[in-house]
Amino acid sequence: MPFVPDERSGPIDWEAVRDMVPLCIPAVPFGLVVGLAMSESAMPLAAGQTLSTTVFAGAAQLATVSLAGIASWWAVVLAVAVINARHVMYSAALAPMFREQPLWMRLISPMVLVDQQFALMSMYPSDDPRSVRRYYLTAGIGFWVVWQLTTAIGIVVGPAIPAGLRLGFAPAVMFTGLVVLSIRTSSTPRAAAAAAIAAAVVSGASVGLRDRLGILLGALVGVIVGSVVESRDRALS
């Protein structure tokens, strides 16, 4: 049965709230920028805001609203598919966590499996299915609500944000902190660091590729390099 509160601690996991708040902070200006783009798009506002609800992915939404009216509908959908392809790796990497989760949880969870959610869950111990569920839903739904509000507000106040602050860069700063944390908490930090460095170099070098294909390319090379370094380290030890 969905959303049965835990008798001991209630339906909200405050640890998840505490962990998610810092990740929400850079998402707020980003959401405002997405809202601003929606207000300038050829796409009707209701359709743009619906993207926040069902697609729930900043980069893909930005691409959609800026391509709408310029590209054909299937080209826009293709761009979204490419930009969001990294989520395939997220759901594959988190799959063991869902081994003991009920069907309804497996159906709802993908709706909120965004970058930040994946970063949190990949560092969360997965031994107790109940606490995994509370943590996942609290963080994911909380972040989803914040995103709905900020993109809606962005439609109205976006034009007032000074461009000089360069707020579009804030997510890069936050993800850098998360990369370092994921290396520190890894059981194989050397391999994790190699994966991150290789991915960053390849992604940065291929930023000219269309639809941000470089992110996917960099991630794949990073995973391969990390695996190679890990198996070498295992062979040596």
Binding site: P171, A192, A199, S203, G204, G218, G222
Partner: peptide
């Protein structure tokens, strides 16, 4: 399973580089 454990640092680092390198 080992390879999938590197997805986190790899994708997040690739995102950082892509944002930092800017548009086009």
């Amino acid at each position: 399973e080992r390879a999938l454990r590197h997805v986190g640092p790899a994708v997040l680092a690739a995102l950082v580089a892509s944002i930092a390198a800017g548009d086009g």
